[in-house]
């Protein structure tokens, strides 16, 4: 079981990394097409803005799974608890996990289940009925990144508990501020 969770988490991380890298590259290419088309083409394509934006959302949410996996998420303050295997360190880890579950589980749940109408009226089902007018495809294909990323985060979380001993928090090399 432990091996399976770790293997699954690593495999998903590799996959998410490839897709995220493709999304960043795709976003760059799409925006360039938008700029070039304005000056070069007789009739510029209208889908560039939507496609670039949706690739950004994919980049960001899959990037969030990469960030979670490598423990490079921003913290307000480092833990005052001693590290695992001290029981207080275990407690701190448990508190982290509770926070992640509190945030992520409702998001995943409401992707599939609606307030009324159960499975038929969840977020994904609602998005399936909407059509992106520039591409003519259903919005659900884009929106599916929300549950995909959140479920990957849950699997990475499970892998954190399967891992012994817990790795130290990685020192962030760069940041955004």
């Amino acid at each position: 079981m432990r091996k399976f969770v770790l293997g699954l988490s690593n495999a998903l991380d590799t996959l998410a990394r490839s897709v995220a890298v493709a999304a960043v590259a795709g976003m760059f290419v799409t925006v360039m097409i938008q700029v070039i088309a304005r000056y070069g083409f007789a009739s510029p394509p209208v889908w560039t803005e939507d496609v670039a934006r949706y690739m950004m959302v994919w980049t960001g949410l899959l990037g969030a799974t990469l960030s979670f996996k490598t423990r490079s998420d921003a913290v307000l303050m480092t833990s005052v608890f001693p590290a695992r295997p001290h029981w207080l360190g275990l407690l701190a880890e448990a508190i982290h996990s509770a926070a992640v579950l509190t945030f992520v589980l409702p998001v995943v749940y409401f992707c599939f289940v609606g307030l009324r109408g159960g499975f038929a009226r969840g977020y994904l089902a609602r998005q399936a009925a909407l059509t992106m007018d520039t591409l003519g495809i259903a919005m659900v294909w884009v929106a599916s990144v929300v549950p995909i990323a959140m479920i990957i985060i849950l699997i990475h979380l499970a892998a954190r508990w399967a891992e012994v001993p817990a790795p130290a928090q990685a020192e962030p090399q760069t940041s955004l501020d």
């Binding site: 990394r17 995220a20 890298v21 999304a23 960043v24 590259a25 950004m56 980049t59 960001g60 949410l61 899959l62 990037g63 969030a64 799974t65 990469l66 960030s67 979670f68 490598t70 490079s72 998420d73 921003a74 760069t174 940041s175 955004l176």
Partner: peptide, 14 residues
């Protein structure tokens, strides 16, 4: 590209 995705992820999840 990978570093970009990860950094974007840290801010987007916030």
């Amino acid at each position: 590209l990978e570093a970009t995705a990860r950094l974007t992820g840290t801010i987007f999840i916030i």
